[in-house]
Simulated assay, not measured.
Amino acid sequence: MTRKQIAEMVKALGPEVARELIDAAARSAPGRVGTDRATRESSVYASVANFGAFTKSVIALGRRTSATELIDAAKRFGNAAVQKAVQLSKFDSAGVLVPIQQSGEVIEFLRPDAALLKLGVRTQAFRGELHMGTQTGTSVFKWVGEGETVPRSAPKYGKIVLKAHKGMVLTDISNDLLRTPGVGDAGVGEDIRATVADGLDDAGFNGDGTGAAPKGLFVQFDPAHSFASTGTTPSAYLADIDKAVELPLTAHVRMGTAAWVIHPTRATALMQLQESGLFLFRGEMLDKGTIRGFPFVMTTRVPTTRITFCADWRQFIYGIDENLILSEHDTRAEHDETTIRAIVKGDFKLRQPKAFSSITY
């Protein structure tokens, strides 16, 4: 073939070759979501240090759009894995705008700090809006005598709808920290992770649905399953906790990922309960991490006035929109600081409200 013919062939194959290269990169790139939806070892989410280094690299680039300049920034602030992940980032001429992975990765990144995720809630990726079917009633069984008829019955169904609610974090980072390679990476990543996880937990438990906020657990579950305590004596605590476990089970909710969620102050009150000189809950809570045989998670994001039980936390849908977005939002030159913005979109729904019960004090 002549040089001209080779050139023409290369032009014709260009789009196909490019597509193959992109597909290969997507399959092998560090930080991408695999078929098992597990976090890759070299992902920017694999550790808070990786995430912090990645964030610092993005900020250091400023408002320039050259990929080469970004990679140079990554070389100063990140390790090799971070540098490779950065090469796949996309940038906007109005500033650094980095879509990072998909929601499976986001959830894994938040899991160490999010109480809801520790409870075993069902995580659901969605984009914008998602409709999910749910069963609200069952068929009816009845014995019939000879010649008698049985009334018709059928299961009843409804649906729940997840809609993306947007939450944001703005944080100021000292440029002295950004200029120091290898220093403070974990601190930068940990601060962002903890702040986002805390905001999502607060909304997931306490959101009232007003304004842009989503509705959380305490405004969604069945009102009949929230009851006032009968007192703070040992016998009252025991009776109330037994009732909290009993309510979901007598509502025919199948036992699955059952657990309690409780404020640390209320947990301390339980551990201090004594009867005839013996602690009622202390040994079980400290030795086994359980209350009445079911594990518990402590968080300050639930009120001190509640002890909440769920027969199956998978009935709580924890939806996260596809992208977690980082960007340089502003530069505080007078303070020698850089402001970064993190945006996450999500929603929370109870698939079976009767799976939950709550004691109020």
Rank of each mutant, 00 (worst) to 15 (best):
E8K: 15
M9K: 15
A12G: 10
V17L: 15
A18M: 14
R27H: 05
S28L: 03
D36A: 06
V44I: 15
Y45K: 09
F51M: 12
K56S: 08
G62H: 12
F77S: 12
D92Q: 11
S93E: 13
V98W: 10
Q101N: 14
P112I: 02
A115N: 09
A115R: 09
G120A: 00
G120N: 05
T123C: 04
E129V: 02
M132S: 09
T134F: 01
S139N: 15
V140L: 08
E146M: 11
V150N: 13
G167K: 06
M168F: 11
R193P: 10
A203C: 06
G204V: 10
G207T: 09
G216S: 09
F221A: 01
A224L: 09
A228W: 04
G231M: 01
T232P: 06
S235D: 15
L249N: 11
A251D: 13
A251F: 08
P264A: 00
E275Q: 15
S276I: 00
L280G: 01
D287R: 12
D287V: 02
D287M: 03
V297P: 09
R301M: 06
R301G: 01
P303W: 06
R314S: 08
R314F: 01
F316H: 10
G319F: 00
L324E: 12
D336C: 00
I343A: 07
L350R: 01
P353Q: 04
K354G: 03
K354L: 00
A355I: 00
